[in-house]
Design a protein around this nucleic acid. Structure first.
Lengths: 338, 338
DNA sequence: CTGAAAGCGCTTACAG
DNA sequence: CTGAAAGCGCTTACAG
């Protein structure tokens, strides 16, 4: 009737399987068969359904499919950062692998390590996708990992494996400790009296890069200077670099990542200290730019993308349909022929 | 019976709202009220429900909620890359904004610009989340954008707005053209006879950075050299840089991004050409490292994160519940008092 | 080859 | 304040 004001909703409601069924003059189950490529549909029926699908612009609802199937093909990664090289490269590896497996990838950034914020992110992620990967290279990630309910499939990329109050966790890590020790020994082998360390933020005193560095120094009987650094980025490296540049006894510096190394190099340059003439610098990660610094950077290459892929496959193993193995039960009804 | 082999599914089925209801001795609607914080529930009832929730480890299914509500609070971004600075920073802006709005963020990388691959990614994204942001700074992104059905809410970050066969599209862009022109004029103003350009991959001959550069040269009556470059990364810059270094007439170089500029600087350095003494170099983007190069890089700062946030809010406007405005229909039943 | 029934886990009215 | 009913859009058996 003309007396009612008409309300135009901006977006027409999407066609459902039943709308298609009606348009094609079949049941909705038949539509389901067609869109799922079941072979048991008469050619003519299929064509009518397809025509209706086309005409109505039907798109099947992924959430309805997920509900009906009782599972989501989604995975979310919880990470403190997406732009720093290491994090971004791990993410890239995860993305490649999950895409190859046909899973959707959600990402949720942990902006702070404040308890309630982290908890909110974890809970959102948990009921959003049922499977998680957390990149726990910082406090926020470590916090997040502790809050994941035991029955949620998950994998954690960690600095170093550790006992988490006795719970077994699916950790993944690289042997940064050995790498840091090797880099330190290399510098020592070059004749440096000792090696200074500009750290990425330490999760614990025994963070693997720091630990490897310290171990190598102790092994060699070299003095162990106080580590510097309080950040991940170039600026933090630059600031640490200025302190080091002011100390003429400093001749070798190991850095927790390549960004820090760039900052140190810049600070040394400003202070007029030649690299590598007067001061040697080593980075960590081998970001794609590092080979093009001036001077090009000696560094430790880490296969972050490979690590990301490994995270995914470990997770995938957890969520894959368990193969129910049939067992032969041997009782009394069988025996060798007489 | 003992004759059947028993099959243990590895993961116990999660508790539903009905399981909780049964455990608490109420209806499932009441459970729904409690978990949604409805006030109209008796204290005692609420407590029993909460206890059951706790005991059963109940977690509400986001997909069921989405189905019942008829909408997904999810958004997926389609992008050709996640690690290059520009892409990563846009992504970061989108992530911040969508997290603030309580929406889930999925990401799907377009690995190639091959038609079927892109189509698959778009379709997956469409029925996965119903709302899309595409970063169309490369061919894959441009392809993807063309395949998005008209009725799917979406926003596209583009190099430059263009008519897409007449369809109006929700584009977002920055004025790179003006910025490139300004940078070029700055170099010209320094006294350089002309400015060479190392391009990021060109979408069209009139890609805005290239166009701005060319315009500024023409304006000034300066010769317009052939642009170089065939990639996004430092290596591509390095290779272009070697060609430029071999040409003694080259004194100023504008680069399509900071990574390219780093490569050019490295190549110039190797060729013994001083920067900025003999050759001036300008980048684009202002990545966080660029201020710490040696020499520190003159560049064009772009607010990628802001652009990402803008993408989100434009999208959010599209998917927000349309406010249905009531209209006063004036007919014959009303008039001024006698 | 095709349809009627039941269910996935929730929410939204509607009656008490 | 609380429950019975219907529905969101699909899928999985089960009968023809």
């Amino acid at each position: 009737m003309d007396v009612t004001g008409h309300t135009t909703s901006s977006r027409p409601k999407a066609a459902s399987i039943r709308d298609v069924a009606k348009a094609a003059g079949v049941s909705h189950q038949t539509v389901s068969r067609v869109i799922n490529g079941s072979s048991k549909v008469k050619e003519a029926t299929r064509d009518r359904v397809l025509a209706a699908v086309e005409e109505l612009g039907f798109r099947r609802s992924a959430t309805a499919v997920a509900l009906a199937h009782g599972r989501t093909r989604a995975l979310t990664v919880l990470t403190g950062n997406t732009t720093l090289y290491g994090y971004a490269a791990v993410l890239q590896g995860i993305e490649e692998a999950s895409r190859a497996a046909g899973m959707s990838l959600a990402i949720s950034v942990l902006e702070s390590d404040e308890e309630t914020a982290v908890r909110a992110a974890v809970e959102h992620a948990v009921d959003d996708s049922g499977a998680l990967i957390v990149i726990a290279y910082d406090k926020a990630g470590v916090q997040a990992q502790r809050m994941i309910p035991e029955d949620v499939p998950h994998v954690v990329a960690v600095e170093t494996p550790a006992d988490d109050e006795g719970r077994q966790r699916p950790w993944i890590w690289t042997d940064d400790r050995a790498a840091a020790a090797e880099a330190t020994r290399y510098l020592l082998g070059l004749g440096h009296r000792t090696v200074h360390y500009v750290a990425i933020p330490l999760l614990t005193e025994s963070s693997p890069r720091a630990a490897g560095w310290r171990t190598a120094l102790l092994e060699a009987g070299a003095p162990v200077p106080e580590p510097l650094g309080d950040g991940w980025d170039t600026k933090a490296g630059y600031e640490a670099g200025r302190m080091l540049a002011a100390d003429p006894s400093v001749t070798a510096v190991l850095c927790g990542n390549d960004d820090l190394a760039l900052g140190v190099i810049r600070a040394m340059h400003e202070a007029g200290r030649a690299i590598p003439g007067e001061v040697s610098v080593i980075g960590f990660d081998d970001a794609p730019q590092s080979a093009y610094f001036t001077p090009s950077l000696t560094t430790v290459r880490l296969d972050f993308a490979g690590l990301g892929r490994a995270c995914f496959s470990l997770l995938h193993d957890q969520i894959a349909e368990p193969v129910i193995a049939p067992h032969l039960i041997i009782r009394e009804s069988t025996g060798s022929p007489a």
